[in-house]
Nucleic acid binder design. Structure first.
Lengths: 141, 141
DNA sequence: GTTGCTGCAAATAATTTGCACTCTC
DNA sequence: GAGAGTGCAAATTATTTGCAGCAAC
């Protein structure tokens, strides 16, 4: 979820819409996952700690796991086996570089095209990860 | 790598071709990854332990990591974040059920078709994982 | 024979849990 | 005010590493 960053109010609304209780910690954690690009749990923790130094890592883990169950975030694993998170949950395509491990969202138009293609051949994809060697890594070789 | 199970000799040849030293442990571990369907490390350990009870889990991890570097196996992560392995390393498509977590190789013909499609639109995929809700899970709902 | 491989046990990293206290609704 | 949410510390799980003996080339 890059582009327009959601405001605290939007996040509050999002949590409410899923029947979750509103706390400052939860809003901050949602904000962190939205602001950072496919962060790992500790990235989220560090982001949140700056604004709320008393927060515990356990709260971050518990909240992330709550968000997963509520369908607010999706979890994915990069090629170094770190668990990463993203706020978007509609089906879309992630691209991962097998060399540097970077992950990014595929641009929406192509993403939809690929998902449509997969549907057409009989799969019913809720997501898709494409493994590539990214341009940067290809050039460095 | 299902279908025809490779013999110990084939595995020996495979290891040699990558310049790896041949040991009984390595052959067994390769055999296990080949025989089991996307096993996790402990599955491999259990399989191997039956035929060689003295083997240590550390050897399994070390050998797996060696195989990865040698490009003999690929590692992937299921939707419960367990690390799984497969002997095939040529580009192919894995399908993962987001509900039950099962992973399977897509049938070769469709797999090639999808990879060709991705190439055509400018990606250069070395692999692809499609997330779905499998038929079994869909029916149970 | 030499160098790399293995088994064991201990170290590290990532994530989860129990409990007492605090806050949202 | 009740019950869920949080912080802290301890527990658990997955994986890696040091070291001494053993095996492959």
């Amino acid at each position: 979820m890059r582009g327009k960053a959601p405001e605290a109010e939007d996040l509050t609304r999002l949590l409410k819409s899923r029947g979750l209780k509103i706390t400052a910690q939860r809003i901050l954690i949602a904000e962190a996952i939205s602001a950072l690009d496919h962060p790992v749990a500790v990235d989220v923790y560090r982001y949140v700690s700056r604004k709320m130094p008393t927060i515990g890592l356990a709260t971050v883990y518990r909240t992330i796991s709550l968000f997963k169950k509520a369908g607010i975030i999706r979890e994915l694993t990069d090629l170094k086996n770190s668990t990463r998170f993203e706020l978007r949950t509609e089906p879309h395509v992630n691209v991962m570089c097998v060399n540097c491990g970077r992950i990014w969202d595929m641009e929406a138009h192509r993403s939809r095209k690929i998902l449509r293609y997969l549907s057409r051949i009989g799969l019913n994809p809720v997501g898709c990860d494409v493994l590539v060697v990214c341009r940067h890594c290809r050039e460095r070789r």
